[in-house]
Simulated scan of single mutants.
Amino acid sequence: AAYADYSPDWTYTIDWTTLSVAGSSVDYRYNTFDYGKSMHTDGALSINKDTTIGVTYLTQKPDGSVVTNSTSHDKNVAFGLNSTVNTDAPSFETDGYTYNSRVNHNGASYVFDGWYLDQSYTTKAPDSVSPSSSASFYARYIANTKTLTYQANGGAFSDGTIQDKTAVQQVGARVSFISNPSRDGYVFTGWKDKDTGDVYSAGVSVMIMPDRDVTLVAQWQGVIPIKLLGDETKKTYSGTKQSYTGFTVSGLDMGSYTVSGVQALAQGTDVGTYKGTIDYSGMRIFEKSSGSDVTNQFEVVEASEPTLIVEKAPISIVTPDDSKLYDGAPLIATK
């Protein structure tokens, strides 16, 4: 219907394209085309006549194929091109056709970057065009990225710095968190999304990047101070080496937690006082109700060794009764 005034004098132009992406131009996968794997060729027929010209729009799909749309326009009459694009909306219209502002491929998000004059995406088309002959425009989609910011919130990052760290991440992609920060007297419990309040606990290492800038704030819990106090005991000399391993955990509810890995030992043989040793380098603390290892929520602020006192062994001297007839001499007991 657009060419009801068909004339054999018209000229035709066929544009063959494989969208040979080069340089900074990319496909939906953000990679340069591999022609050995995804070769695709399209032919677009444009008609040039005295008063009108054909306009072709080529859009590459995530699977590598190309969608071609065509319209006709009066020669040398301007019409909107990139001026019609609104990537904040889910879709936009160009020359009567609807296009997606954002597309997803393999979980990652890509955003429309504009119409280009060449299939290598080196020259972006102006907002308004007025071609005098057939024209082709190429849609380019680029990675949709947002900024991810980490805040140590009173702590320090693994490299010792305290300033915010930022990274550009692609929307929809899996993001691995940086190493956990540290803070004296506190235990790191996770990252909190400053905008939503969502918390990624310390055991979570990844997130899916949303379509917005994100600030993650380190969350801290003050460690609970505990004391490992070696006990004192007394034992009676036995002639052999004796040992004592008793200690008390102060500041910890032993009805709710169990402690393992503490090595306390005092030893001695002869009568005397023996100060031992206490080693808690392998200490683990477990919550009884859940079985969870919560060692990092406690800090030993004092540790003392156990004491063994070996005391003298008591002995008894018993003399038996003795008797004799009186003979005027003293009675001497020798047993």
Rank of each mutant, 00 (worst) to 15 (best):
residue 67 V to C: 15
residue 54 G to I: 05
residue 80 G to T: 14
residue 96 G to F: 05
residue 51 T to Y: 11
residue 62 P to S: 01
residue 88 D to E: 14
residue 74 D to A: 14
residue 68 T to E: 11
residue 104 N to I: 03
residue 61 K to I: 06
residue 103 V to W: 02
residue 73 H to I: 01
residue 67 V to K: 15
residue 96 G to D: 11
residue 66 V to L: 10
residue 53 I to D: 04
residue 67 V to M: 15
residue 88 D to K: 03
residue 62 P to N: 03
residue 64 G to C: 07
residue 99 Y to M: 04
residue 80 G to M: 12
residue 75 K to Q: 06
residue 79 F to D: 14
residue 89 A to I: 00
residue 93 E to D: 14
residue 71 T to L: 02
residue 89 A to F: 01
residue 74 D to S: 15
residue 97 Y to G: 01
residue 59 T to L: 10
residue 87 T to Y: 09
residue 67 V to H: 15
residue 107 G to E: 04
residue 108 A to V: 15
residue 56 T to V: 14
residue 94 T to N: 07
residue 106 N to C: 02
residue 70 S to A: 07
residue 95 D to I: 02
residue 91 S to Q: 09
residue 60 Q to S: 11
residue 53 I to N: 01
residue 73 H to P: 02
residue 75 K to I: 02
residue 79 F to S: 10
residue 51 T to I: 06
residue 84 T to G: 07
residue 63 D to Y: 06
residue 82 N to L: 03
residue 66 V to F: 09
residue 69 N to A: 12
residue 53 I to C: 03
residue 78 A to G: 06
residue 77 V to M: 12
residue 109 S to W: 06
residue 104 N to Q: 10
residue 109 S to C: 02
residue 93 E to L: 10
residue 98 T to F: 00
residue 101 S to G: 07
residue 88 D to N: 13
residue 63 D to Q: 03
residue 70 S to W: 07
residue 108 A to H: 12
residue 92 F to W: 06
residue 75 K to N: 04
residue 91 S to W: 03
residue 77 V to F: 07
residue 65 S to P: 15
residue 58 L to Q: 14
residue 53 I to H: 01
